[in-house]
Simulated assay, not measured.
Amino acid sequence: MPITNWSTAGGDLRVPHFIGLHSVQVFVLAVLVLTALAPGSAGCAANACAPS
């Protein structure tokens, strides 16, 4: 591929590494956003802001 210089013939491990690594980052971001938007969370994740 001209822009990324990834091999299209196979054997290039950068492609699955890129997809796997960034999919994990997207998953973490989605969890943070959904936690912040959850009803009654007030922006606190996993009771981190619960009164003691």
Rank of each mutant, 00 (worst) to 15 (best):
M1W: 11
P2Q: 13
P2H: 12
P2W: 14
I3S: 04
I3W: 13
T4S: 15
T4C: 10
N5V: 06
N5S: 14
N5P: 01
W6P: 05
W6T: 02
S7Y: 06
T8Q: 14
T8F: 10
T8S: 14
A9V: 09
A9W: 10
A9K: 04
A9E: 15
G10P: 00
G10H: 04
G10R: 01
G11D: 08
G11A: 12
G11Q: 03
G11N: 05
D12P: 08
D12R: 06
D12I: 14
D12S: 10
L13I: 14
L13N: 01
L13E: 06
R14G: 02
V15R: 03
P16L: 05
P16W: 10
H17V: 01
F18M: 02
I19P: 04
I19S: 03
I19Y: 11
I19R: 12
G20I: 00
G20H: 07
G20D: 10
G20K: 09
L21P: 01
L21R: 08
L21M: 11
L21V: 10
H22R: 10
H22D: 08
H22S: 12
H22A: 09
H22K: 09
S23M: 11
S23Y: 07
S23N: 12
S23E: 09
S23P: 03
Q25W: 13
V26D: 11
V26A: 15
V26K: 08
V26Y: 07
F27N: 08
F27M: 15
F27I: 11
F27Q: 12
V28L: 10
V28S: 07
V28M: 13
L29A: 02
L29I: 04
L29P: 00
A30Y: 12
A30H: 12
V31Q: 05
V31L: 07
L32T: 03
L32R: 03
L32H: 08
L32C: 12
V33K: 09
V33L: 15
V33D: 00
V33M: 14
V33T: 05
L34C: 14
L34M: 15
T35A: 04
T35M: 07
T35F: 06
T35W: 01
A36D: 07
A36V: 09
A36H: 07
L37H: 00
L37E: 01
L37A: 06
L37M: 10
L37F: 01
A38T: 09
A38V: 02
A38L: 05
A38H: 00
A38N: 01
P39K: 11
P39V: 05
P39M: 06
G40S: 13
G40D: 07
G40A: 12
G40C: 11
G40W: 00
G40F: 05
G40N: 15
S41I: 00
S41G: 00
S41D: 01
S41N: 04
A42V: 02
A42R: 02
G43K: 01
G43A: 05
G43E: 00
G43S: 03
A45L: 11
A45Q: 05
A45G: 04
A45I: 15
A45N: 06
A45Y: 15
N47H: 08
A48S: 15
A48G: 02
A48V: 12
C49E: 04
A50C: 02
A50S: 12
A50D: 04
A50V: 10
P51T: 03
P51S: 02
P51F: 04
P51Q: 02
P51G: 01
S52Q: 03
S52V: 13
